[in-house]
């Protein structure tokens, strides 16, 4: 699918130190002018913004629900989630649909940038509280040309009470 995918990691889940393969594939996206990435293995698809039905009784970073080919999935606004300033939806806005904890969840991002391959040894452990993102949701940082790539651990990101069953 992607160039050189024969060497792509076959491991599932977020990239974590200790996984066997030396190279991981990531999908990059932008939030408030910062570069983020999620392991490609966790991404189901990337879709255009569509009408969202607002949900009551949920934190404001949950935008609501959309219909994804007959499935009803929640949409999380990552800007709001990380306390970044709000931004109007534009042509670049995308929803990254990820599979996490047996669920399908959409994440609103400013733009999707590129698919990239990174060597595991390029990834540094997250420093304590340097960014808006709490460090427990990071699986690491990587330097990409002159930019800093923030790699999210979506398992941990969605492993919290506001997204868990039964807390309604």
């Amino acid at each position: 699918m992607f160039a050189g995918s024969r060497n792509a990691p076959t491991t599932e889940g977020a990239p974590r130190p200790g996984d066997a393969s030396p190279v991981i594939q990531l999908v990059g996206f932008r939030l408030d002018n910062e570069d983020y990435a999620i392991a490609i293995t966790r991404i189901q698809e990337i879709i255009l913004m569509k009408p969202i039905t607002r949900l009551p009784q949920v934190p404001d970073f949950i935008e609501g629900l959309i219909n994804l080919r007959g499935s009803v999935i929640p949409i999380v606004n990552l800007r709001k989630r990380f306390g970044l300033p709000a931004r109007e939806v534009d042509d670049e806005t995308r929803i990254i649909v990820v599979n996490v904890h047996d669920r399908t969840v959409g994440c609103v991002v400013d733009a999707v940038t590129q698919v990239m391959r990174i060597n595991r040894d390029q990834i540094q452990p997250p420093p304590l509280s340097v960014m808006a993102v709490a460090h427990q949701y990071l699986s690491g940082l990587a330097r990409l040309d002159d930019r800093l790539l923030i790699i999210l651990d979506i398992d941990r990101l969605f492993d919290e009470p506001s997204l868990a069953v039964g807390t309604g």
């Binding site: 039905t53 609501g64 959309i66 219909n67 499935s71 009803v72 969840v105 039964g166």
Partner: peptide, 27 residues
Amino acid sequence: LKSLEKNFRSISGLSGASILGNGRVSL
């Protein structure tokens, strides 16, 4: 009826969601 728990969680006051003729989700 589509359950909210499948991809999210239950919300008190709602028994689920459903998809309308225009493709949008109703509660």
